[in-house]
Structure formats: C-alpha cells, structure tokens
Nucleic acid binder design. Structure first.
Length: 426
RNA sequence: GUGGAAUUAGCUCAGUUGGUUAGAGCGCCAGAUUGUGGCUUUGGAGGUCAUGGGUUCGAUUCCCAUAUUCCACCCCA
C-alpha cells in the first residue's frame, strides 16, 4: 500500500485551510454584492455532459478526463470544469423559469488527468460564476467588474485584463478558413504542433511560442476584421462600460480560450507570478451552450478563477491573509479535583460563544501552559486547590503573564471579560 | 504523452572518495523549576537513507527500473 496522496493531489491542513476559507468567503461576499446565489452540483456527471458541453475535440475531453464505469455500467466522469455541470443543472431544474438573469456562483474542486507543474494539479479548485439569460454586453462587463472588485478586496494589484471577441460561430468559421488560406503555403515550415493545430484548431496557430511560427503569426489575418457588425457593437458595449468604471484592459487578439463553447467576449486575468500558467482567471460568453446541451437558446456568460493560482499570486504580492491565531481560553487544571469544574466551566463558556479547551492528555500544569502558549491562545484559566476553595480561578493573559481572580459561578461576567480583551489578541 | 532536475527524521538540510552504532537545526515529549508558558539548559522519542532489482566480501553511497516531487512542452484555471 502506498501511503502517499495520489499524484497531483495534496492535503490542506490548518492553519492553511483558514486562509483558503477567508479567500472563499471574500468571493462569496463579493458575489452576494452582485446578487449571485450559490449553486452546488455533483462531483461527477454522466460522461456525455462533458463530451457535449466542453466539446469532443478539446484536450480536456480527449485526454484529461477521469472517466469510470459505476457498478450499474454507467459511464461517469469526475468534473473537469464547472460550466457544463451548471448548465446541465440549469436545464434539468428548469431554472429558465426563474427571473432573468439567473445568477449563480460556485466553489468547486475539479479533476483533470494532466502532468503536474507550477499552478497545475490533478485535483484543483475554481471560484466561478455563470449568468444566464442576459444577451447584451452589460452582463459581460458587470462580470468583469465583479472580478475587479474581488481582486481589489483581496488587496491584489496589477493583474492584467486581456480582452478579445471571438465573434459568432459563423464569423469564426470564416476566419478559420482565412487563417488556413494564409498558412497553407507555409504548412511545411510549421512546427509539428502547429501542423496539428492547422487541422484541429487554427486559432491556436496565433499562439505558438516557436520563434518562426510566432513571426509568421504577426502577418496573419485578424479575427477582428471578420467580426460581424453585431459582434463589434457588442464588444464596443463591453469596453465602453469598462472605461466608465475605470477598469483597465488590453485588447489581446491572441486569446482564444481552450473550450469550444465560447462566443463573442472572452477574457483572461493574467499574472507573471504563477510560472508559465499565468492565467488566474478565464471567462467569457457562451451563447449557444445551453441549447447545445438540450435546453432552450439562452445566452450566458461566466468565468472561473483558479484558486491555487490566485493564492500563489496573493503570496507573490504579499497580500496573503495571515493565518488567524485561535481566540479564546485554555482551562488548565492543577489538581485532579479541578477536572470536573473545569469541564463544566468550559461548556458554560462555549454556550456563551467563547472558544474554550481543557487538558485532554492528563498532563502537568506546566505542560498545559506550554500547550496553551504554543497554540497562541490569548488567555489561560488556572484552576487549582486554592482557587477552588475560594470559588475562583486565575485568568492569565498569555501576552504579559498578568493574572486576575475571576468567580467560577459567574460565567457571563467571565465571558464578557474575555470578549472585551479578545480583539487585541494577535 | 514527452523532456530536465531531485528524493536522507514531522520540517529544512549536512554526510558517507563503497566499510561496523547515519548527523545538525527547528518541531515533538520529559526533567532542571514539588502550582504556571515564552528565554536558558539537560535528556528522550523519532530514519527499512523513496520502492524493487543488480554489481560487490560489504550499498544509504555505484548501475538499472518504478513511484513521487519540482520545473518545462502540449494544453488549461
């Protein structure tokens, strides 16, 4: 038996989990400010949901899915992304009968069978949202405004917003043909990857890092020139709003997004601090996905933030919230006779919302004090024979060692005392 | 799927040009302090030297394979 977590997965332990929770809480609160509600969906779906939703030709479906048969012979897949499952739920639950737009956010763990590198794991986490039923550019811009506010609340700076439009499926197809016409004479010179891209996804040709191919891409036709009038108008609508809010953006004609379902607006937030996987957030509009998966034609828009990458960026910028020391009190017992009163007092304090712990290892008073110190608790409460005889305990401030007697029969007062001093605890 | 580097205590790392009981710092437990943490000091626990083969009188050390970690390609968050 191998006692290691499977490749590409990892354990998250306290106090690190507290940092994650703070980031997730901040996201949920920001979403609530824009009136999004949380959706929770299954960890696995029928495999077709992703085949049709993400697209049969994508890398995700072709080589990255954790697919298995259950005992009933059904083909199931651990979710490699959130959108397809949310759209499946939108259709199945009849959410199109809710008032539009339907605004949903999620915090999910996802699974992709890939080789591990910086900012990429086999199980990873995304903070994301989807908005259904709003056809205009206003929702695209608002979703970006939400992201902008979220990053601001986390204290992040200088995450570059890259913006592009892929147009409709029709003009993208025209453009793909134009690209092929442009590259056809040079087919032999292209790197093997690009020869494959030429067949499968010509848009990716623009993205190649090989020097020669990169040069060639400079002269390639621009997708912008193939946008229909409505897509142009839509795109202008997005940028107009971003400018109104003072949100900086950069038009990046190379961003393409890997998933088949995007149309018109696509965007990324990119950082230089996350290795070569610098995309912290990717999103855009997907007007035909609901229909593709068997629902009505409902336009939609969304994004996903890579939580691991977001945390890396926060660390690089030095804005990671420090893990919080526990608040509350450790009730130390100097005598066996104090164990029962200590247990009673601990529960009385907890009822009053004060975090309290007692010795569970039957250790010496000294060892108990050491324990309380190591946990970083602001207070300990010492119960011994002398104090018990007087109906008291000694409340000790761990920061300065000052002690004061407190009544054992007045937990309300004790709770108030601890609460009033707690905010100062580091 | 491909390529590079790495793997010694819970953590960060020394080390053995192949030789008997493998070390340090931090952390953990306990004592010095018979009712009190942090500083100091003393001691203790904790390692099949990633796993499996091979070479050798002898392998933690050399060789091969595998696993895992880190980084990169593809691609994505």
């Amino acid at each position: 038996m191998s006692l290691t977590a499977p490749k590409g997965t990892r354990d998250l332990l306290p106090p690190q989990t507290g940092v994650w929770r703070q980031v997730e809480t901040c996201f949920a609160e920001t979403c609530a400010l824009f009136q999004y509600g949380e959706i929770r969906i299954p960890t696995f779906e029928y495999t077709e949901v992703f085949q049709h939703g993400v697209g049969d030709t994508t890398d995700i479906v072709q080589k990255e899915m954790y697919t298995f048969q259950d005992k009933g012979g059904r083909s199931l897949t651990l979710r490699p992304e959130g959108t397809a499952g949310v759209v499946r739920s939108f259709i199945e639950q009849g959410l199109s009968s809710r008032p539009y737009p339907v605004k949903l956010f999620y915090i999910l763990n996802l699974f992709r069978y890939e080789n591990v590198q910086k900012g990429r794991y086999r199980e990873f986490h995304q903070l994301g949202l989807e908005a259904f039923g709003a056809p205009g550019p206003e929702i695209d811009a608002e979703v970006i405004a939400l992201l902008s506010l979220f990053f601001e609340r986390l204290g992040l700076r200088n995450i570059c917003l890259h913006l592009n439009s892929l147009g409709t499926a029709a003009c993208r197809q025209q453009y793909n043909e134009a690209l092929r016409r442009y590259y056809q004479p040079h087919l032999e010179e292209l790197c093997p990857d690009c020869q494959r891209r030429f067949e499968q996804n010509p848009l990716r040709l623009l993205d190649c890092k090989v020097a020669h191919d990169h040069e060639l891409a400079q002269g390639a036709p621009l997708l912008f020139d193939y946008l229909d009038a409505e897509s142009r108008e839509h795109f202008d609508g997005v940028t107009r709003l971003l400018e109104r809010w003072g949100i900086p953006y950069e038009i990046d004609k190379r961003i393409v997004r890997g998933l088949d379902y995007y149309s018109r607006t696509v965007f990324e937030f990119v950082s230089e601090n996350v290795g070569t996987q610098g995309t912290i957030c990717g999103g855009g509009r997907y007007d035909s996905l609901v229909e593709t998966l068997g629902g009505q034609a409902v336009p939609a828009c969304g994004f996903a933030i890579g939580e691991e990458r977001l945390l890396m960026e926060m660390e690089a910028q030095g804005v990671l919230p420090s893990p919080q020391s526990p608040a509350g009190v450790f009730i130390a017992t100097a005598e066996q006779a104090a164990v029962l009163p200590a247990a009673g007092l601990a529960q009385a304090l907890r009822r009053r919302g004060i975090s309290a712990a007692v010795d569970l290892c039957r250790r010496s008073l000294k060892a108990q004090m050491k324990y309380a110190n190591r946990l970083g608790l602001p207070f300990s409460l010492v119960l011994g024979a002398d104090e018990l005889a007087r109906g008291e305990a000694a409340l000790r401030s761990m920061a300065d060692g000052q002690e004061q007697p407190v009544r054992l029969d007045d937990p309300d007062r004790l709770a108030a005392l601890i609460n009033s001093a707690a905010p100062g605890a580091k």
